[in-house]
Design a protein around this nucleic acid. Structure first.
Lengths: 331, 331
DNA sequence: TTGAAAGCGCTACCAC
DNA sequence: GTGGTAGCGCTTTCAA
């Protein structure tokens, strides 16, 4: 490959200085005469020179890239998270190297391995991976920030405040007079699903110890919400409120109820979690999460960690906000 | 930074061979004795060696990464596109380097510049950037694939088959007996909006030359759909079908019609474009686009181009599929 | 089949 | 301040 691209040497030659000086100018070192700087820069300009990143990385052992490993996600959650990360990363002069990690731990390992040497740190969201599997798959010696993942003793960790959100939701339902509140949960291996479910139980136990507690386990999608709601229907719908573990499940519930001509919210209240755009259109009561903010924060922490600040390995919680809409409205 | 990571030299020493042989083994060159290979591999194993990517890149002038530059996108479209790209990229042994490019051309230039040397090629979607601006911002000498972007003489280009989708839609409406079909278009500077609008006109002219043609220009959002529909309402709703340029506009139309107590689809049929999740929920007739497939295809073409196949600079169209639902149902 | 060595382009240390 | 230069870790001729 004799791609004769201009190198730092060409610039040095044209400017009449050494490569060392050119390098200094390019990296903003202060020990350079303004005159030198000017000459070098004009040579750079004239040649249309651009530094070779790989060479620089080899020299500095820095890539200025951040690896982002996420599960197979859909829709708004994914795009919001990426938006937040991208914004923070550009601000800090980092690029994002993205890859999906599927449920399979060994594949996740391959993906993470492929990032070795390409990134200065990794942000990983692996709610489906056990702590041990994850730690095993992660390249050693690279700063890591966890998002919504189990464990968190080894790395800084960001989590959605599922407990706060779900507690507020249960309180809201109770306050609006609901007595038989059922929770449609996601798969409980998923940490968010687990926490929301736990928070539901705890909130019920604390706020309304005499009322029945019931959890129907499903998965984080619309079809699951439909199926679980149909099963309630088969029982004669012995509840007056359905709190789903996320908005998609709530959507499934709404559809099933509508098809069965059960009035929402008059007969049954329905609530979700996440506040996807859909929720607003459907006037669905839900819990909003600042996903973009969470992504940005993850980048911030990681960059700090890359820069050597071994500050704290503590877990931070991304605040949530109860949004009450029509589906839990009147009664 | 004396991070004493094991290098190829350590492996060579332990295996009792030269670095050249280790390199050959690692790169699967055939001219190595099985015995040699075995010894090298066990040394690799023993040391937990992993090649330094930057060094390899410097040597080979290959990064095995693809740059992806997208506008600030929301929701399903973004995540689907990324999913498709990620899948294809992993399959081909590439990683994705992602960055948003905002409307500002100079910022877009910076982003693209930052990718130089980090990627072997770029996939760019810049419907908002003029062809000249884009070409100016793009690093020279790097393979590029365009998605939904103006121009396309310089690079292979992928586009949504707006024409096919809209034509099928118009045909469907005509077949179901609609006679006065109005099109709510997006801003016609947007290439998709323009094409859909043009396809509507052409399809009407070809399939029903005697029927009236009418385009109301708006923008790709719900509020615009509402506003345009209200203006039709003010005229006494002189149409029996509304084809919006996307689902959000159709949603706006639906809401306005519902508020005005105009029966859908009995009195007026409504259709959208994109098949966002909302469309399914609202039972909205629309045109589905295989976004993930489009992303995967873009990667395929780019990788081929990186590999030196200077095949065709032609534009490919991502197929669409008419999805008929209740909003254009009976009559 | 294997090894020695010349780069790849850049940074940073050490002299001057 | 500036220049020379030794690596950074790898791939790939060219010889043996």
């Amino acid at each position: 490959m004799t791609e004769s691209v201009t190198t730092i040497r060409d610039v040095a030659r044209l400017a009449g200085f050494s490569v060392a000086s050119v390098s200094r100018v390019l990296n903003g070192h202060s020990t350079v005469t303004p005159a030198t700087r000017a000459k070098v820069m004009s040579a750079v300009e004239a040649l249309g020179y651009f530094p070779n990143i790989a060479a620089r990385s080899l020299s500095t052992a820095r890539t200025h890239a951040i690896g982002v490993a996420l599960p197979d996600m859909h829709g708004e959650f994914f795009s919001e998270l990426m938006r937040g990360m991208d914004r923070a990363a550009s601000d800090q002069g980092y690029l994002l190297l993205l890859s999906n990690i599927h449920a399979d731990a060994s594949i996740a390992g391959q993906v993470l391995t492929a990032m070795r040497g390409r990134v200065d740190g990794i942000i990983i969201m692996a709610p489906q991976l056990a702590e041990g599997e994850r730690e095993n798959a992660l390249p050693r010696g690279l700063p890591v920030v966890l998002i919504n993942s189990p464990g968190g003793q080894e790395h800084p960790s960001l989590r959605i405040d599922n407990t706060g959100g779900m507690t507020a939701m249960v309180a809201h339902l109770l306050q609006s007079g609901r007595r038989t509140i059922v929770h449609l949960s996601g798969m409980l291996e998923n940490i968010d699903a687990f926490e929301r479910q736990l928070a539901y139980r705890n909130a019920m136990a604390r706020l309304a110890p005499d009322l029945p507690v019931r959890v129907l386990e499903g998965s984080f999608d619309e079809a699951s919400g439909e199926a679980l709601t149909r099963s309630l229907l088969a029982e004669g719908m012995p509840v007056d409120a359905i709190v789903a573990a996320n908005d998609m499940m709530a959507l499934g519930a709404l559809q099933t109820l509508r098809a069965a001509n059960i009035a929402v919210p008059d007969r049954v209240a329905v609530a979700g979690f996440d506040d996807v755009p859909l929720a607003r259109y459907l006037d669905l009561t839900t819990v909003a999460v600042d996903i973009a903010g969470l992504g940005a924060r993850a980048v911030e922490i990681l960059v700090r960690s890359i820069s050597g600040e071994t500050a704290g390995l503590k877990t931070e919680f991304c605040q949530t906000r109860l949004i009450t809409r029509a589906t839990t409205g009147g009664r």
